[in-house]
Design a protein around this nucleic acid. Sequence first.
DNA 1: CGGCCGCTTGACTAGTCTCAATCAGTGTGG
DNA 2: CCACACTGATTGAGACTAGTCAAGCGGCCG
Lengths: 259, 259
Amino acid sequence: MSRLAHGRARGIMADSKLEAAGNPFLRKLEGFVPLPEADRAALLKISENPQVVSAGTDLIREGEPPDGMFLILDGFACRYKLRGNGTRQIVAYLIPGDAGDVDGALLRAMDHSICTLSACRVARIAPDTIWDLLQRPAVAAALRKSKLVDEATLREWLSNVGRRTTVEQLAHLFCEVHLRLRAIGRADGNRFELPLTQQDLADTTGQTSVHVNRSLRELRSEGLIELQQRHLTILDLPRLKLLAEFKSEYLHLGDQAAA
Amino acid sequence: MSRLAHGRARGIMADSKLEAAGNPFLRKLEGFVPLPEADRAALLKISENPQVVSAGTDLIREGEPPDGMFLILDGFACRYKLRGNGTRQIVAYLIPGDAGDVDGALLRAMDHSICTLSACRVARIAPDTIWDLLQRPAVAAALRKSKLVDEATLREWLSNVGRRTTVEQLAHLFCEVHLRLRAIGRADGNRFELPLTQQDLADTTGQTSVHVNRSLRELRSEGLIELQQRHLTILDLPRLKLLAEFKSEYLHLGDQAAA
DNA sequence: CGGCCGCTTGACTAGTCTCAATCAGTGTGG
DNA sequence: CCACACTGATTGAGACTAGTCAAGCGGCCG
């Protein structure tokens, strides 16, 4: 990132401020809990040596013992489960700022896999470093809260797959991703990068890519969205939310601001 | 419980041992982490004044601020979400030993409701008491692990609803409940109480009660289960597991034993 | 330029839902 | 103790949703 090189000339404070604005992990945690400067610096530090991973790479596989954690800095990844017959269910998206398995070390084996959906910048955090981070009360609180939000999102997804039509599910998904990306400054108004194939969307909603294709067409013909070149534009957010019956509360994004 | 009255005459140690065998919360946590005697006593104490709640009672509703936590000592309850059109999605079962929202206090509002599915004995734990419990390292570790298992279960359910047929889903569900009940000593071999209506099962699998009825008939006619009078008997566990593609690892029940 | 992957569409099939009627079990009041 | 009411289970018929199979299209990369 060229921004890092430039930052150096501006002194440490400016560097931290500048980089912080672009660091999705920091931005996400600060959305939950205000962080002291020392914590912010520590969080920036762990993002320093990211690794570029191409799309479709498993970061960790079901059955393997968790080893440290991943931090997504750029791109989309997902948690997924595979069935014996080859079908895949995506159970969560990991977007920039999301971390895989902060306290996974408590369990002996992964019950699911994590895979990149697009090219990603990924930082790997060693167990010791995680432990150090967890000694910082503000960081620990933010991570705990983040975990609660992950769980709430999982419940929302379950209720999506179980009780929404495909069109509604997609609408809901787009509303969610939109908000999550906005929270970390990665959405340009109502437009953002969505590097998912229709098969990925199908594995998320529990349906077929053919059916997803037809449902997307419906959303397009209703004038709700535009989706091309891996970019999604929400043309009519209020109507999309209405259709999806989207309530953003489960993401608990405004909690700190409202408190 | 008459056992308590008897226990008193036997002195504190015997009382604790005896009661511990029947206390599902203690039994569950000990399945994860060995607990010192003082912790066991503290856990028994919080279960002392349960309240009997009839079936179909909301313990807490979506939108309300969480206040302390519930502990199910007997019966089945569930977490669920309601849509505007009245459809319900059950996102988790709470069986004896399960607690609602240990660290829910971190969030301002429930994103789902909790409701009893059968008559239940429920202990309400005040926030202060939770805080006290969390000061005990072994208890805190067990609760954290329990939370990870809840999350893993949520993922399993999502992949159920998304990628399994109704028959497979029901088979999977029965395998899961069977194991969970066995872990707390509430299953008599392959037979256990399952006080759920077909509508409850439908709200779990994301389908209609009519369709659940037909799928149950299929499981019965295959000689896999018997379900009557709110009791389920698994007639052929190996074949049921095979059909469901059930892998128990996500419940992490054997972790302590295996470690 | 050719091959590959992902998108799009059509025709047909299979899985689920809806509506509706009937049956069975439980609890209540007379 | 019995009739009645209510809830939940069961079944059938027809409609609709989503899946399967298959073909054609289009952009991107080597």
